[in-house]
């Protein structure tokens, strides 16, 4: 095992990650265009992961990519939920319904925790009833 301690490396790596995922200032000596391109590619990749989990987000691609640029990932499961909660009022109908179903079935938190008791959630177009791990949307006509 080497004796040399990776001194300074931890701080250097953290500064770079903060620049990439939090929009923090880029440490000296890096190519701003190339690191910026990497950050955008990363945000697009996160949108791809999110859309696989929540296809209902399809119409919110640009908003998601912009949001991801300064919200470091907490895992895709948590990210899509955080995004949807932060944009509750501007989501389109399919995304709002998906959020309502998610909130009826799961408790908000770092790890997926199903709700144990039957729940009822109102959303602009109707109501979600959830029980025993299944949800049903009852829409208003």
């Amino acid at each position: 095992m080497p004796r040399e301690e990776p001194s300074g490396l931890a701080a250097r790596q953290e500064a770079l990650v903060r620049a990439l995922v939090e929009g923090a200032p880029l440490p000296d000596g890096f190519d701003a265009h190339r690191v910026g391109t990497t950050a955008r590619a990363l945000a697009r990749k996160r949108y791809g992961d999110a859309a696989r989990l929540w296809p209902e987000l399809l119409a919110h691609r640009d908003a998601y990519v912009a949001w991801a640029a300064d919200h470091p990932t907490r895992g895709t499961w948590q990210d899509v939920w955080d995004f949807a909660r932060a944009h509750r009022d501007s989501l389109d109908a399919p995304a709002r319904a998906a959020l309502a179903v998610r909130e009826a079935l799961w408790r908000y938190g770092d790890a997926p925790r199903p709700r144990r008791l039957p729940t009822l959630r109102l959303y602009p177009r109707g109501v979600v009833v959830a029980a025993f791990g299944r949800a049903r949307l009852l829409g208003r006509r």
Binding site: M1, P2, E4, E5, P6, S7, G8, L9, A10, R12, Q13, E14, L16, V17, R18, L20, V21, E22, T38, A41, L42, K45, R46, P72, T73, R74, G75
Partner: peptide, 28 residues
């Protein structure tokens, strides 16, 4: 590569500096 630092996930494979310090970290 490294994918996290200071408790933050990069969500991506990031290059390490090709330095003696990174070589020591990778070796360990």
């Amino acid at each position: 590569a490294f994918v996290r630092a200071g408790g933050l996930e990069a969500g991506h494979l990031l290059p390490v500096p090709r330095s003696r310090a990174a070589l020591a970290a990778l070796t360990r």
